[in-house]
Amino acid sequence: MKRASSRKDDSPSIEVQMTVPFHDLDPMQVVWHGNYLKYFDVARSALFDSLGVNLYGYEGNSSFMYPVIRTSVKYIHPLRHRDVFVCKATIAEARFKVIVDFEIRLVESGQICTEGRGEQVAVKVPEMELLLGIPADVRKALGF
């Protein structure tokens, strides 16, 4: 899925290897579509952790939270029970909102199974005021 973005060639990214558990399957014996968002979240969290960014720990060290406002998914090839796959997360933008691109592919064959994108914004708490940009310290940590 080609997308226009301001992503730099050296944008931070991470790959997380996982294996499909039985409880993620639907009655057709493929991964239920909603579970791909869970895989995205695992990779997104690992990416933020690798960069020293805790977007979810605002309680004590920041007055901001970063809700996901949009997610898109393109299903290309189904994942099945015990498939070993990699979910790659890459920062595509972090100036006005945090945009993370995702790619899920099978380890054995390299087959791309899923592509996606998640968008998050900064919200000042407790006012619940939407910021028109990502705070400078977070932007810098995310490479923007």
Rank of each mutant, 00 (worst) to 15 (best):
T90R: 12
V84L: 13
T90S: 08
A46Q: 02
M18R: 10
D137S: 12
V30E: 10
D9L: 05
H77D: 11
D83T: 03
G116S: 02
P78V: 00
M18P: 08
G118M: 15
E115Q: 11
F64R: 11
V100M: 07
G143S: 05
D10T: 14
A89R: 07
S62D: 12
S6R: 14
L25C: 00
K2F: 05
L132Q: 13
Y56R: 10
S11T: 05
V42L: 14
R105K: 10
S72A: 06
P12Q: 03
L131C: 15
P126I: 07
P12R: 02
R82A: 11
D10A: 13
F96G: 03
K8D: 05
H23I: 05
F144R: 05
V30R: 10
I99N: 11
R3C: 05
A92L: 13
G118W: 01
D9H: 09
E119K: 01
V73R: 03
A89N: 07
K140S: 09
V100R: 06
H81Y: 15
K88P: 02
A43W: 04
F40G: 02
P12V: 04
E15P: 04
A43Y: 07
L37T: 06
L25W: 09
G60N: 14
E129W: 05
R117C: 04
M28L: 02
G118A: 15
A4N: 08
L132F: 15
Q17K: 01
C87Y: 12
V53G: 11
I99F: 04
A136Q: 14
V42A: 09
V20M: 09
A136C: 02
P27C: 00
D49S: 04
M1T: 08
P135G: 01
V123C: 07
T71N: 13
V16R: 00
K124W: 10
E59A: 12
G110L: 00
E15L: 11
K38L: 10
M65V: 14
D49F: 08
V84N: 15
R117H: 00
D41A: 05
Q17W: 03
F102L: 01
M28I: 00
F22S: 05
G60Q: 12
W32R: 12
C113P: 10
K2C: 02
E127H: 03
L132Y: 11
V121A: 05
P12L: 01
L25N: 01
A94F: 13
I104S: 08
S6P: 06
D83Q: 04
F64D: 15
S72L: 01
D83G: 03
N61C: 13
A43N: 02
Y66N: 11
N35F: 10
P21W: 07
E93G: 10
S11C: 11
K38Q: 04
V98N: 09
L51G: 06
A141P: 03
N35T: 04
T114L: 06
E115T: 13
E103P: 04
L130D: 03
L142V: 07
C87G: 01
G57Q: 14
R95I: 11
K88L: 15
E15N: 13
V98I: 13
K2Y: 12
G110T: 08
K74H: 10
T90Q: 08
S62T: 03
V42H: 04
G118R: 01
S63G: 07
L132S: 14
R70V: 07
V84M: 06
Y58I: 09
F48P: 08
F64C: 11
Q17E: 09
F96C: 06
